[in-house]
Design a protein around this nucleic acid. Structure first.
Lengths: 187, 187
DNA sequence: ACCTGAACACCGTTCAAGT
DNA sequence: ACCTGAACACCGTTCAAGT
C-alpha cells in the first residue's frame, strides 16, 4: 500500500511529532504551517479546531501502535522477546528527540481535553495492559498473576518515560524496564 | 511563624496550583490575575517572565515537599508507615482536583523549560530516590537492594500518577502503590 | 514600592473571497 | 475542493505613567 503524502496526512504526522515532543499547548498551528508549507488558516480547512486535529492524531497513533507491535511479534517466539518488543515501542520514541508516547503526554494534559478524548486515552491504556496480560497467558502464566504483572510492567514503563524527560538518560529507561521484564520471566 | 499573605506569595501559590492542574502552557497570567485580584501586567513586577514565576514556584514546592514529609515521619516508627507517608504526598495532590506532583508535570513539559529548570527537576527526582533509599537502609536493608527498591517505588509512583490523570480513579493509584510497598516490606 | 493601560507580536478561530 | 488575508479576542512581555 503506497503512502498517500497528501496535505492532510502531513498535518497529522507533524501534529503527532509536535505533541509527543512539546505537548498539546506547546506548539502552534503556525509551527505546523511552517513545516508543512501552507498558511495557518489552511489547517482549519482539514481540522476546524485544535481538538479535531488531536482526535485524528490520536486515531492515527493508536492504530499504528498496535499494528506495528503485532507485526513485530509475529516474527518472535519467546516471551522475553515479545515483552521487549512492547517496551521498545516506547524506547524508540525516546530515541527520536526524547518523544514520549502520545497518550502519556495527553494524559498529563487531560485538563485541556474533552471527555471523549480522556476516555480514548484511558481505553488505550487499558488495551496496553490487556495486550501484555494476553501475552503472559499465552506463555502459561495464570490469569490473576498475569494481570498483576501486566499492570505493573505498564506502570513502570509510564514512570520511566516521565523520568527520562528530565534526565535525558535513555539508559535509565533501559535499566529499569529490563529489570522489570527479567523479574517477570524469572518469577 | 505567621504566614505572610502578601501578593507575591498569593501569585506563587496560585501558579503552583495551576501548573499542577493544567501544566505550564495550560494557564495564563490572566488566570492568575483574576484569582489574585490584580491586573495581569502587575504580575510582571514580581516575576518579569513566566520562567521566573516557574522557578519561584518550583523552589517553594520542593522546600515544602521535604519539610512536610520529614515532619510527618518524625511521628512515625515503622518502615511501612514512612513509605506510606511518602506516597501519600502524591495521593494528597491527586485528591485536590487530580493535581499531579509539580515536577512530574514540569518533567513532561521539559521542552518548554531552560536547562537550569530541567536540572532542578532532575535533582528533585534524585532526592526522592535518595530519601526512600536512606529510609530503607535505616531499617537494615542492604545498600544495593535498597537502591533498586527505591528506584522502583519511585518509578511506580510516577507511572501511577500519570495513569490517574486519564482514569480519574485514585483507587488504582492506591492499589498499585500499596502493592509495591507491601512487596518491599515483605521482600 | 507597587500597580496600571496601552502597545507589541503572537495564539486559535472565523469568514468572505479567491483558484 | 483547496487555499488565503484580514479580522477577532486572546497570550506573554514591555514601558511609560501613575500612586
Amino acid at each position: 500500500m503506497a503512502k498517500k503524502e497528501n496535505t492532510e496526512t502531513k498535518i497529522i504526522e507533524t501534529g503527532e511529532k509536535l505533541i509527543q515532543e512539546r505537548g498539546i499547548n506547546g506548539f502552534s498551528f503556525a509551527d505546523i504551517a511552517n513545516i508543512v508549507g501552507i498558511r495557518k488558516a489552511s489547517i482549519h480547512y482539514y481540522f476546524p479546531t485544535k481538538t479535531d486535529l488531536v482526535k485524528s492524531v490520536l486515531e492515527h497513533y493508536i492504530n499504528h501502535f498496535f499494528t506495528s507491535l503485532d507485526d513485530r511479534c509475529y516474527t518472535l517466539s519467546s516471551l522475553e522477546e515479545m515483552l521487549t518488543a512492547y517496551t521498545d515501542q516506547f524506547k524508540n520514541s525516546l530515541q527520536k528527540n526524547y518523544q514520549v508516547c502520545l497518550c502519556s503526554m495527553l494524559s498529563m494534559e487531560s485538563f485541556s481535553l474533552d471527555n471523549e478524548l480522556q476516555q480514548e486515552i484511558h481505553t488505550f491504556f487499558n488495551k496496553n495492559v490487556w495486550w501484555i496480560q494476553k501475552k503472559l497467558e499465552e506463555f502459561r502464566i495464570p490469569e490473576e498473576q498475569a494481570s498483576t504483572m501486566a499492570n505493573h510492567l505498564f506502570v513502570v514503563v509510564q514512570g520511566a518515560q516521565l523520568i527520562t524527560q528530565s534526565s535525558k538518560d535513555i539508559s535509565y529507561f533501559d535499566s529499569i524496564v529490563s529489570k522489570e521484564i527479567h523479574s517477570i520471566i524469572s518469577g
